[in-house]
């Protein structure tokens, strides 16, 4: 290696370093204009309309076709209820076309793919703008879409009661029809 090449190597490296440092100095001096971060959680970004976050359900419209549950690639939607106006329970659980006992999404499994939105005939399940869903326990990650709250043990008890009640009422109706038929 000749003397001139030795010095030109040093000079090239030093020059590239100085140019690089000039760029960072430029960013440093104009930091107010260049800052792209926001102070979360005080300031939040705008959520676009197609954002795929936590689900919400318009319960009166649901017809219990189970299409969203079937299309879900990871099987995280659990639906139970009665179709048609055979819905025998009163008070808030009865929709226009069906009666839901249970409509939950398990967020430890959901991959937010959005496939459940499309096959829904009355278009009543949506993926909404909420992206920060947190829980302190894994059992809290199942969300009851009927109420919009976490799916608790009382909800499970209600569902089991509703199943039993429904079977009893259907058996009664059949029995009643049989008697009439007689």
């Amino acid at each position: 290696m000749s003397i001139s090449q030795y010095f030109s190597d040093i000079f090239k490296v030093a020059r590239s370093i100085v140019i690089g440092m000039g760029i960072t100095l430029k960013y440093f001096l104009n930091y107010k204009k260049n800052t792209i971060t926001i102070q979360y959680p005080r300031e939040r970004d705008l959520i676009p309309p197609r954002h795929r976050g936590i689900h919400y359900l318009e319960t009166e419209k649901c017809v219990m076709c189970w299409k969203c549950s079937e299309i879900c690639p990871v099987d995280c939607i659990y639906i139970e209820g009665v179709r048609g106006s055979d819905g025998v329970l009163q008070g808030g659980y009865r929709g226009q076309k069906a009666t839901l006992y249970k409509f939950t999404v398990d967020y430890t499994v959901c991959i937010f793919c959005g496939l459940c939105e499309e096959p829904c005939p009355p278009k009543c399940i949506f993926l909404g703008p909420q992206y920060d869903y947190n829980a302190t326990d894994r059992t809290m990650m199942e969300k009851n879409l009927r109420t919009g709250e976490v799916y608790t043990e009382e909800d499970e008890k209600f569902v089991q009661w509703a199943r039993g009640e429904n079977e009893r009422l259907i058996a009664e109706k059949k029995h009643g029809k049989k008697e009439e038929g007689k």
Binding site: I36, P48, R50, H51, R52, I111, F112, C113, G114, L115, L127
Partner: peptide, 18 residues
């Protein structure tokens, strides 16, 4: 981030688009 914002407007997700 600019590209991911475009994708979020387009399909709703930033990483796994489907």
């Amino acid at each position: 981030e600019m590209i991911l914002k475009i994708f979020e407007k387009l399909c709703g997700q930033r990483l796994n688009y489907s």
